[in-house]
Amino acid sequence: MSVGSEVLPFEGVTTGEVESAYRELGPSLMRLGWLLTSNRTDAEDVLQNVFTRYGRLESRPERPDAYLRAMIVNAVRDLYRSRSRDERFGQPVDDEPIEADPEVIEIWDAVQRLPQDQREVLVLRYHDDLSTEEIAEVLQCPVGTVRSRLSRGLARLRKEYR
């Protein structure tokens, strides 16, 4: 016997569904986690937390991709909350520097300085290519709120970038 897909303890959502979702969405979700945390280790934690929780769902969500994105965003928020509580107990190890052209790095630096709610919306909009309606679904908030955050986020990003 091996510890592999044949002995997964997942319930509700079937093992096959979890595995399928992981294979299909895992990389993009991990990147989403990374873009929201700026840290690969945290992104892995978030990804693993999300999929272990996903495997415990009693029923399959109507739209797994939106559901999993929402879980990633919420897991990042949880991570920050716990970190602020426990921050004296350890800091994440810094990732290796990203190598890209200067403009990309400058924009990324500016994104990282945004408030988290604006950063979430911008990442979902421009990395995940979601519409404002889809972002609203992920964030479980009104479309107007998404638009507002997007607008403020863009304004601030442009200001930061300048």
Binding site: V3, G4, S5, V7, L8, P9, F10, E19, Y22, R23, G26, P27, M30, R31, L32, W34, L35, R40, A43, E44, L47, Q48, F51, T52, G55, D95, I98, E99, A100, E103, V104, I105, I107, W108, V111, L122, V123, Y126, H127, D129
Partner: peptide, 27 residues
């Protein structure tokens, strides 16, 4: 969009995503 996608792929190449069996173990 280009900036975000570029840094995300650079930080998390496909091969750097944990294998699913690992997730199973972590569960």
């Amino acid at each position: 969009a280009r900036a975000l996608k570029t840094v995300a792929v650079a930080a998390v190449p496909d091969g750097r995503v944990p294998d699913f069996s690992t997730v199973a173990c972590w569960e």
